[in-house]
């Protein structure tokens, strides 16, 4: 069974893993260079010299295009393997009628499915896992400087969560293919389901994986002319700020604070008196627990879907 699956799958596998190998080469070269730039930039010692802003922005201008392109690929690859490997796996056999050939050989359907699942499912997981490993390694100097890896759009693109995404997207494609029995609609369903799951997890599940912390503090006048950054005064770098509100003296949420040009408070620097910032956040120390939680949620859903497939295929 493994032989047949591999025979049908090897071209697609060669394309994806070939592309990954090329990417790995590019990322190794540029990643080593990026590390060299980091060491040479003096960011590590900038606080003692007090020139962190210019040094940081100079370092961040390196490979900015590659950086922007690289992140999303980690999120997209699980969708691609789910759509192009998971959805057609059974759907194409049902659509083209070859299931009547495959299921009447001297091999039980359960074993047939197990063979397919093992080869193609593990390949999907391996592809996304490898890509994430590469990108996480490559971006680590940038993530150290940015301290933003907990942010919603970067959290997805690093660490072990893509393994969960890949398993989930693959299993989703498999179930969709078996239920819909046609390749194209199954592929579309997989894409929609994958996006829906991502949106739901980012907005409703991930912020509450553990009860978020709350902090309230008086609004401080900004040093210099910088823009207001939510939570800057209440959190440490690397914390994930889920929401931030500003309350006025009466306790009402507000978006704008009007200060006239000749207001007396400007000279006494008391214009912000009475205003408070109320924050909901997850501390930076929860980054890895959250990676594990999210990965295991996706993996569990994938397992349930796979179990459902085995039940479906017997009927």
């Amino acid at each position: 069974m493994i032989w047949l699956t591999w025979r049908q799958f090897r071209t697609q596998a060669a394309v994806v893993f070939g592309a990954l190998a090329v990417l790995a080469l590019v990322l190794t070269v540029t990643g080593l260079h990026l590390r060299h730039l980091y060491d040479a930039s003096g960011i590590a010692t900038c606080t003692t010299r007090g020139d962190c802003d210019p040094v940081t922005s100079a370092f961040m201008s390196n490979y900015s295009l590659l950086r922007q392109l690289l992140g999303p690929t980690v999120l997209v690859l699980p969708a691609i393997t789910g759509i192009f490997w998971g959805a057609p796996l059974v759907a194409r056999e049902l659509e083209s009628g070859t299931y009547r050939l495959a299921w009447t050989q001297s091999v039980s359907r359960t074993r047939w499915l197990t063979g397919k699942l093992t080869v193609v499912g593990l390949a999907s997981i391996a592809a996304s896992g490898l890509l994430s490993l590469l990108v996480t390694w490559w971006s680590s100097p940038i993530d150290r400087v940015n301290a933003e890896r907990f942010k919603a759009d970067i959290f997805n693109e690093r660490g072990i969560t893509p393994i969960g995404y890949a398993a989930f997207a693959f299993a989703l494609g498999l179930v969709a293919g078996l239920l819909i029995r046609r390749t194209l609609p199954a592929m579309a369903t997989t894409l929609v389901g994958y996006i829906a799951a991502q949106v739901a997890v980012i907005n409703w599940i991930r912020p509450n994986l553990r009860a978020p912390l709350h902090a309230t503090g008086a609004l401080q006048p900004l040093p210099g002319a910088g823009a207001f950054k939510p939570g800057a005064q209440l959190t440490k770098p690397g914390d994930w700020i889920i929401s931030s509100h500003i309350l006025d003296a009466t306790g009402h949420a507000t978006n704008t604070i009007r200060i006239g040009p000749d207001a007396g408070c400007v000279t006494t620097r008391t214009c912000l008196a009475g205003y408070r910032e109320v924050l909901t956040y997850q501390p930076a120390g929860r980054y890895w627990p959250f990676q594990w939680y999210e990965t295991s949620i996706y993996l569990s859903v994938a397992l349930v879907l796979v179990g459902f497939t085995f039940w479906l295929i017997k009927r």
Binding site: W3, Q8, G97, R100, L101, Q105, S106
Partner: peptide, 30 residues
Amino acid sequence: LGRVGFVAQETPTYSALTVADHLRLGAHLN
């Protein structure tokens, strides 16, 4: 399954696989 041979309607085969592949398929699965 091994005791019953079946040729389905429209005689489905894997169009991307060669004739020899089909024989190897049969040898692996039976």
